[in-house]
Amino acid sequence: MLARSYAYCERLARREAGNFYHAFRVLPRPQRRAMCALYAFMRVTDDTTDGPGLVSEKQSALACWREQLDLALLGDYVHPLYPALHDTVQRYAVPRAYLDAVLDGVEMDLFKTSYETFAELYRYCYRVASAVGLACIHVWGFEDPKAIDYAESAGIALQLTNILRDLGEDAGRGRIYLPKEELKRFNYGPAQLHAGVRNEDFRRLMDFQVSRARHYYAGARPLSGLLSPAGRAVFQVMAGTYESLLNAIEKSDYNVFSKRIGLSRWRKLGLVMQAMPARLGWV
Rank of each mutant, 00 (worst) to 15 (best):
A230S: 15
L69Y: 12
R91F: 08
V102H: 00
T241C: 08
I137G: 05
N187V: 03
G174L: 05
T48K: 01
P80W: 02
C125M: 13
L54D: 06
R32Q: 14
L81E: 00
Y8D: 12
L121G: 05
P80V: 05
L38K: 09
Q31K: 11
A72W: 10
T48R: 05
A72R: 06
L81T: 08
L81H: 14
E250C: 11
L71A: 14
R214S: 08
E116Y: 10
E169D: 13
Y124K: 02
P222C: 07
Y92W: 06
S60K: 15
R185M: 10
Y92K: 05
F208I: 01
K146A: 01
F186L: 02
S252L: 09
E143Y: 00
R11Y: 08
V128Y: 10
A72F: 12
L134M: 07
Y254M: 12
Y6H: 09
E169Y: 01
G18S: 15
L81C: 10
L246Q: 10
L2Y: 07
A275L: 04
F118R: 15
G219S: 06
L227I: 01
A84P: 00
R185F: 03
A218I: 07
C64F: 12
T241N: 08
P52V: 00
L134G: 02
A195C: 05
E57Y: 09
W65S: 04
F111Q: 09
A7G: 11
F208M: 05
F118L: 09
A154Q: 04
E250M: 06
G225E: 11
N162L: 03
M276W: 11
D253A: 12
L74F: 14
Q90P: 10
L271C: 00
M1H: 13
F208Q: 11
N187H: 15
E182F: 00
L103Q: 01
I148R: 11
D166G: 13
Q31G: 08
Y150T: 02
E107T: 03
G141N: 03
V55H: 10
P52E: 06
L27N: 00
T48Y: 01
V89W: 07
S114K: 04
S258H: 11
N255T: 11
A191S: 07
E57C: 05
A218D: 13
R96Q: 14
V106E: 07
I156Y: 15
I163N: 03
L164E: 14
E243Q: 11
D109T: 08
M108V: 15
D207K: 08
Y98D: 01
V89R: 15
V26C: 06
A3E: 15
R279I: 00
A213G: 11
L223R: 04
L193I: 06
G141A: 00
E143H: 01
Q274D: 12
